[in-house]
Nucleic acid binder design. Sequence first.
DNA 1: GCGATCAGGT
DNA 2: CACACCTGATCGC
Length: 723
Amino acid sequence: MSNTVEDDDDDFQIPPSSQLSIRKPLHPTNANNISHRPPNKKPRLCRYPGKENVTPPPSPDPDLFCSSSTPHCILDCIPSSVDCSLGDFNGSISSLGEEDKEDKDDCIKVNREGYLCNSMEARLLKSRICLGFDSGIHEDDEGFVESNSELDVLINLCSESEGRSGEFSLGKDDSIQCPLCSMDISSLSEEQRQVHSNTCLDKSYNQPSEQDSLRKCENLSSLIKESIDDPVQLPQLVTDLSPVLKWLRSLGLAKYEDVFIREEIDWDTLQSLTEEDLLSIGITSLGPRKKIVNALSGVRDPFASSAEVQAQSHCTSGHVTERQRDKSTTRKASEPKKPTANKLITEFFPGQATEGTKIRTAPKPVAEKSPSDSSSRRAVRRNGNNGKSKVIPHWNCIPGTPFRVDAFKYLTRDCCHWFLTHFHLDHYQGLTKSFSHGKIYCSLVTAKLVNMKLGIPWERLQVLDLGQKVNISGIDVTCFDANHCPGSIMILFEPANGKAVLHTGDFRYSEEMSNWLIGSHISSLILDTTYCNPQYDFPKQEAVIQFVVEAIQAEAFNPKTLFLIGSYTIGKERLFLEVARVLREKIYINPVKLKLLECLGFSKDDIQWFTVKEEESHIHVVPLWTLASFKRLKHVANRYTNRYSLIVAFSPTGWTSGKTKKKSPGRRLQQGTIIRYEVPYSEHSSFTELKEFVQKVSPEVIIPSVNNDGPDSAAAMVSLLVT
DNA sequence: GCGATCAGGT
DNA sequence: CACACCTGATCGC
């Protein structure tokens, strides 16, 4: 294990220059907004000796870069014993292969003051206010709990009944006992055992007992009727195995009874058997297997009435009925009057199919709840929904219009106007080149990406110009820059009913946004609530960029340092572009990414800061997940052994701020020769920004698009925005 | 063999 | 934790 040091934000000192000022917002055309050399900085060590004091070129040459700052506290953090040699250079980091995923564990996190760095602060801050607003999702969740509870009751009852019921018990000495009279029948032949147990069984049916008040009933139909009419009074099973054996016999497969006895297959187990299971327990002939599976499908059918089950399985004994009575008993807990046989399967899953896609109105002035991406995915799984009949979340629908936004996972034929706010997978998921459900409306940049990456033909795409009102199916639609990633838009819908809906998509608040909306009375606001929690109060992007720039300057005391900046397919461009501008250094990006940036409409001035020749730059843009762990970073290090002795990675994400001190522009982690900065560079709005935005828009209803901690919490958090 | 989708991972 | 992906397995054509 290598030396491990983590500097939490609590004690990590930002290089002095960054404490000077948070500079003016950056504009792409004005790189000078961030001063290159803060005045109070000591001269930096030269990265490439003999080339200091060279005027930065218009087309920068990385060899001319000159480092000038003193490494300050960062030096303190690097153990002096660290061996800075890193193995052989092998190739591009962007083409990393498979890496191990366990490095979390070998990173011991201790800061200089001895605190555990994974502080509980963030968690303590997390308030969990449950307002209990009524909504579909709330119901859904309750539904899950309820159906889980039902399942638990069912399982418990089944195991109880198994505990009580008699079975052909195989003793430790492998002796076989009759479940009814407990006589040792090991010495009997199969046939004799059957005869014996059947005789016992028949006897037990004819003998009244406190366990079975219905044994007098010899008539199957009366059993079925009673099972439906009076499920509560039903007795426990006489035995779990005997019905199986009788059922087997009714199929003409008595010769397999010993197999079922040996495997202790009771009625419950029987119903879950697959053909493979049957093969594995020794039913090697295809015919009998098929016969059993076939008969089982009839028994299992949840829609089949008891009588149908009986007819399909040719079961003439009362045992099937008894098992069904058992189930009826279980379900009675929640559905006392409803016979199981008449109950639709969907009724066991409230909030799913029966809820439909109708738009519900939320109580004012707070949120209407709707599932987040991830929670709705989980919901689908928990319901065993195969994904074919997904319920469209509220945030994908525009009230008062037939429009859908970012809803390609929920394609339906009743809609032909599909809006895409931006090109991130979780928003375009489900969109494929076979899309034939109408038009896709999006920004020019998004349209280019959709066309290039997904192969959607241009005929399907309708480009929306920023700030231009267009009429689609009688509804005015205007879109604005969402300040999230290139091409991202927020969309204003103004239907004839006068109830305007603003869908923010994913967005990072900027002041001009409220100006665009002056004069529009927003009835419903579909809001990106990714960081809708007071714990997420991160700095402006400019401050984080500033932090990164100065951290690079500070770490650059070692000329053999490789800097890595994490990025998505699209997103975070501003960060590395500004880094390049301010440091006046080219930055390596892979050719695919370069093509993408050209497609995104970056100017030639911007593009000149990038190179696809990795040897031209010691600042590389890499996929964010490459930086996710020290293990991965070690792989990177191994590929660059000769060239670099120190790796400094920047992992830009908003959620970093949740666990660090408020407004901290970053935290620093180190393992040996690898340093990782987690910087709260977010392309979503902070809680403060959300609050400001909501106050300016002052909508009647807010529909959150993301539930971080479940719908209750989302509603509670959204309610904080309007207080 | 291919694309689409799902499940599980970071 | 949540971001916006990724990989591998499975399915249907």
